[in-house]
Design a binder for these strands. Structure first.
Lengths: 150, 150
DNA sequence: CTTGACCTTCCAATGATGGGAAGCCTCACA
DNA sequence: TGTGAGGCTTCCCATCATTGGAAGGTCAAG
């Protein structure tokens, strides 16, 4: 199976398949005499596994751990659960940060006349944040990667 | 005021101040004879404005629009409100996507024994997603940039 | 005058992804 | 058997916001 077919079957783009191979997330694919990569149905399963984990927001490093457990028939489900649980916490942190942003913005938007006059509490708050509108710890609020999927 | 002091006063790192200047988000700073950039309190206000908008999750392109409105004394608050409102929608989309991930994962985690046996519904679902656990539209779910803040 | 803290520019890396060019391979069709 | 389309290969570049570092100039205090 060529890379294009594997891509279509797995939902992972050919570009990304090569990238995952290059970064070591997946083993180097077999090659035909022509140099073309050759994928088995098992490989496609692995790619779908990765695709699915990405859809759930796992970072590539986490996916790597999950893949190792997937391949390990003597894994302990506790290890899988731990990874998933810690990912949940991470997601919840991000959600919390985003919710705080929304709350702040909604407060401001609801105070803005939205007419043709220049006075605007949103601008005012950006200039000089009012105490009530504070983001939590300006430090590390729920910030993080979530992929480019155009 | 040197760039380091402006950075400290505004909460925007010196690196980022130079970057914003380079990309045209902010005008080129005045220079002293030595070549050092020189910032006025007004410049620091602008930097704090940017910092604050970043904290609220605005993308740099949006910040650019906001800065233009900020500088425009004959702005219409409606324009500001529109930008803020559309940013709220964007944030809410992201939150929705993240919540769906959390829901799916929580369903799986709650079904996982988390012991030393290998059987694990999380792994199983990654292999072959069960219908109930679906992400919404595998397409463009709340995906987006949110900065690296280490 | 020396020293250390600051500033300058330039270059590189991050993570996940897409875009494109130059060149080889394959298959179907005439 | 030749040819063309389309797939594959590698390699390089761009994204976005941000950080890091190296090499060298400047400033202020001792």
């Amino acid at each position: 199976m060529n890379i294009g077919q594997a891509a279509k079957a797995s939902g992972v783009s050919a570009k990304m398949i090569r990238y995952y191979e290059q970064t070591g997330l997946i083993p180097k694919a077999d090659r035909r005499d022509s140099g073309y990569r050759d994928y088995s149905p098992g490989d496609v399963n692995m790619l779908r596994f990765i695709r699915r984990a990405r859809d759930l927001g796992f970072a590539v490093t986490e996916i790597n751990e999950l893949l190792n457990l997937w391949r390990d028939r003597s894994r302990h489900s506790a290890d899988v659960k731990r990874i998933a649980q810690s990912h949940i916490f991470e997601l919840q942190d991000r959600i919390k940060g985003l919710n705080q942003m929304v709350d702040t913005l909604q407060g401001l938007v609801s105070c803005c006349a939205g007419d043709d006059r220049p006075d605007c509490p949103i601008i005012a708050d950006l200039e000089e944040p009012s105490s009530g509108s504070a983001l939590p710890a300006p430090a590390s609020v729920g910030i993080g990667r979530l992929r480019h999927r155009p």
